[in-house]
Design a protein around this nucleic acid. Structure first.
Lengths: 224, 224
DNA sequence: TAGATTGTTAATCGATTAACAATC
DNA sequence: TAGATTGTTAATCGATTAACAATC
């Protein structure tokens, strides 16, 4: 140990991330949930909240809430709780949702066009930049937004003009890996994959699967 | 212990579920993944598969695969592996996807209409019975299927005529709890919730959340 | 028989929960 | 000061992985 403990504590109490990308997905997901609840509380004019409150609202354990938050700094005040506005701001900073997060969508079919105009994304502050489709004319007819739709061949050109943070994949299953390879080559580091295809990416690129059929299959198990 | 171990083993080797509903969601999810991979293998004419194979295809550990499968019975043959067709059939039986699984969708808006006509559901054998919306006429214009769309007031009448297994919620956030209460009263035991609202249900009713914004927020964390 | 692979037990790992001193 | 609630350590729980005897 070359640094003493008070130095470590000092570093972290300012709210610096630890060795960030190692945080478990479950923790990140909960941070996102806390952020939502805090948003509602802030809207209601509530100025402080305890870990027990937060836990109750989300069906979690209060120890877990405190532990999750303590990973990133000391945001609470013993005997008082957490200041709502400040905590929310901190969590947004931690998640990176305080900055512009640029999103593109590839595959403007049935599902893709719904995702492109999904209000929830806008509401949470995401910037949906562009859509891409193998048939941009047909795609444009499906979607009711002013977001420009390009031919998928223009992927390279567009991303070169303005880098994107997250790509949403809603292409046919067979096209998933090919598009993924191109996205990765273009430096896209995060993909939200709505196809059931398991896609291969180099280490460091983050993929999240939203497998709609799989959700139904899982539920099917519990209802028989 | 009133029953001896060989009796228990005998009961389970036929492929009977254990005290079923206690199985962890993670295991159920993987069963669903195995089922998919097996479907592809069956299509390719492959007749046997080892736990190591299956694990490699899904980025899992072979012990985990064997353990998951062993929960429900002895489907493998030591020194040989698992017979593809039979294993797939067993998993489908365990998941309940070998029978008709009836699904309804409430909230035929942008997202809802895309979900209603989502090919993946059909492909996995789910039966999308009906859609419901507060404005069925407008909703009918959005969706390109022959699935009938009813007024949400007709929920009770329709479900009385033919019970459903799973309800998909794609209504505005504020309407989520109200609709949920009605679904629960109608005996619906599984809800796939696409709204960000945390909904309250009595014990025994299963809810799964697909929170689209939350997925983006989680990814946002990893790309900063 | 020799080789392969299962089913299962034991070991490990990580995540959740409980407990409590520190502190506002 | 007394009461409340944090941050953190220790205990518990559950899930994953390793190991290996059983067996085809």
């Amino acid at each position: 140990m070359s640094v003493n403990e008070s130095e470590i504590a000092a570093t972290n109490s300012g709210g610096q991330e630890p060795d960030a990308r190692k945080t478990s997905p479950a923790v990140v997901k909960r941070l996102s949930l806390y952020s939502r609840v805090l948003q509602a509380m802030e809207f209601d004019g509530q100025d402080k909240v305890s870990s027990a409150d937060l836990a109750r609202r989300l069906g979690l354990n209060s120890s877990q809430v405190r532990k999750d938050l303590a990973i990133f700094g000391q945001f609470g005040v013993p005997g008082f709780g957490y200041p709502v506005m400040e905590l929310r701001r901190e969590i947004r900073r931690i998640l990176g949702t305080d900055r512009e997060v640029r999103v593109i969508l590839i595959g403007v079919g049935n599902l893709g066009s719904a995702l492109m105009s999904y209000r929830g994304f806008l509401k949470q502050g995401f910037t949906m930049l562009w859509g891409f489709d193998a048939d941009p004319v047909a795609a444009a007819q499906r979607v009711r937004t002013r977001i420009p739709i390009f031919h998928v061949d223009d992927l390279e050109q567009q991303i070169a003009s303005r880098p994107v943070d997250i790509a949403v994949l809603a292409v046919p299953q067979e096209a998933a890996q090919g598009i993924t390879d191109r996205l990765v080559a273009l430096g896209v580091m995060a993909i939200l994959n709505f196809t059931p295809a398991r896609i291969q990416v180099p280490a460091g690129v983050h993929v999240r699967y939203v497998d709609l059929s799989l959700e139904l299959e899982s539920l099917s198990f519990y209802v028989q």
